[in-house]
Design a protein around this nucleic acid. Structure first.
Lengths: 168, 168
DNA sequence: TCCAAACCCTTGGATGTCCTAGTATATTGC
DNA sequence: GCAATATACTAGGACATCCAAGGGTTTGGA
């Protein structure tokens, strides 16, 4: 977004919280704000890596999910549940992926309410190439050291479980 | 978005990565995906807490920032830099806050290019009340224990510094 | 002095997310 | 068997974010 700031704005916010008598929640406020900002940075990196493929992160996630399904097809409601996004967001992503020729909609054989999303050959190829780039340009250069990665997975895994994402 | 899943979808994605020969980046992939999902959960909680005030998180952040400025006013480009969002996002937020009577635009005394955003009395009051609710309903019940909060602040602080957010 | 480069904000366009219906299809219960 | 309820997807609307481009203001070098 521009030049680095001379001071950490989140650390400053934390000081402001402490000065205003909210010291008891200043630390979690800072942690949560840092998560919001980190997500923003990571999303920008991911979108940048995917741009050459004409993909956004939302569309890539759907492609990747389909590429791991044995049949290369999933019901939309299943995709919505696994990606943990609103059904309308899946509809939106499928519309665009279908326009790009990367997936096709098909009817469910036994349930007339359900629509299946199926990867095309082109979609499968693109998913593979996009994943390779993400792995090398983003995940392979995350900037987190090994121990911190483990800490994040543990801390955020507990959080997500407590938030009701999954029971396992 | 509905019922909890029987398995952690991010742990499954990690297994898929390992099975496909990308074991070297499977852990950071999982950590980054977990950050994306955690941000989504936290944002939903925050938006829920702010809804009764007619505020979104973006608008709240701007109100809070102004409330900590001594004069209660800031140039738009300064707000953009401190909140680390695009200038157009600030324009958008100010438009809506101004319509709601919570801030006003005014001309900079010496630089004709610059627009100042100033908190109204109503805006200052609302910021205070909204902060109280966020503190008690979100930050005070984050679900992170004290040590994990410290870990997050440390890990994400390092990340943000390396990403060029600040130099301090 | 004066014009080009830099800076500031806004408008318009593309995306994505959620919410609130609304339509169609399944399932359940009486 | 049929009506009531549940489920699946989509359409339309509100917001937020970014990028690209445009018009006004300042600054700085020739």
């Amino acid at each position: 977004m521009g030049t680095p700031l001379p001071r950490d704005p989140i650390a400053d916010a934390r000081l402001n919280w402490e000065r205003h008598g909210w010291a008891d929640v200043a630390a979690p406020m800072a942690a949560i704000t840092a998560i919001m900002r980190t997500q923003q940075i990571l999303l920008a990196r991911i979108e940048g890596a995917l741009k050459p493929f004409g993909l956004t992160f939302a569309r890539y996630e759907l492609l990747a999910l389909l590429s791991f399904a044995r049949s290369g097809a999933l019901p939309m409601n299943k995709a919505s549940a696994l990606l943990q996004v609103h059904p309308t967001s899946v509809t939106n992503a499928v519309d665009r992926l279908q326009d790009a020729g990367l997936v096709v909609r098909s009817r469910h054989p036994t349930d007339g309410r359900t629509t299946l999303i199926e990867l095309t050959a082109e979609g499968r190829t693109l998913a593979k190439r996009a994943t390779a780039v993400l792995n090398s340009e983003v995940f392979g250069q995350s900037g987190f050291d090994g121990q911190d990665v483990d800490q994040l997975i543990r801390i955020l895994g507990t959080f997500r479980r407590n938030a009701g994402d999954f029971t396992g």
